[in-house]
């Protein structure tokens, strides 16, 4: 478990170092995710401690973004003035993206489409 947490912190650190070095606006933790994913693909199995640590963190992932979500309070005026537009834009964009994907599946004759 502690070993798993150590691995996650080291990969996060590596990710932050890389984004800081090349100045690319990709979050360092996502770069860490990709580095760990590549490592696991090469190593071919997930060390037990890492599996435990990941499971515990992901189990409570939704709690972890509550503090950031409460920050919506700072955008109250925005929600009041553009709230309905936000819902409309999100609906159009979600339907558009889903239609493009369904179209691609049918076009490429994916099994099951």
């Amino acid at each position: 478990m502690l070993f798993g947490f150590f691995i996650l912190m080291v990969y996060w650190l590596l990710g932050e170092l890389i984004t800081a070095a090349i100045g690319w606006p990709v979050p360092g933790n996502v770069v860490g995710l990709v580095l760990l994913w590549i490592s696991l693909t090469i190593y071919r199995r997930v060390p037990e401690g890492l599996a435990d640590a990941s499971r515990s963190l992901i189990r409570y992932l939704t709690l972890l973004f509550v503090p950031a979500g409460v920050g919506l309070i700072q955008h109250w005026d925005r929600l009041m003035s553009h709230g309905l537009w936000m819902i409309l834009i999100i609906t159009i964009s979600t339907v558009g993206a889903a239609l493009v994907m369904i179209g691609l599946f049918k076009l490429l004759k994916a099994p099951g489409a």
């Binding site: 933790n29 995710l33 760990l36 972890l64 309070i73």
Partner: peptide
């Protein structure tokens, strides 16, 4: 005010870092 709350809950927010890296495990599986 929110900035005080944000400061006080930074320990919870911090765990988003390793938790995001941890998404590599289910992705790999």
């Amino acid at each position: 005010d929110y900035s005080q709350y944000q400061h006080d809950t930074r320990f919870i927010h911090f765990l988003l870092g390793p938790a995001t890296v941890a998404l590599a495990v289910p992705l790999h599986e």
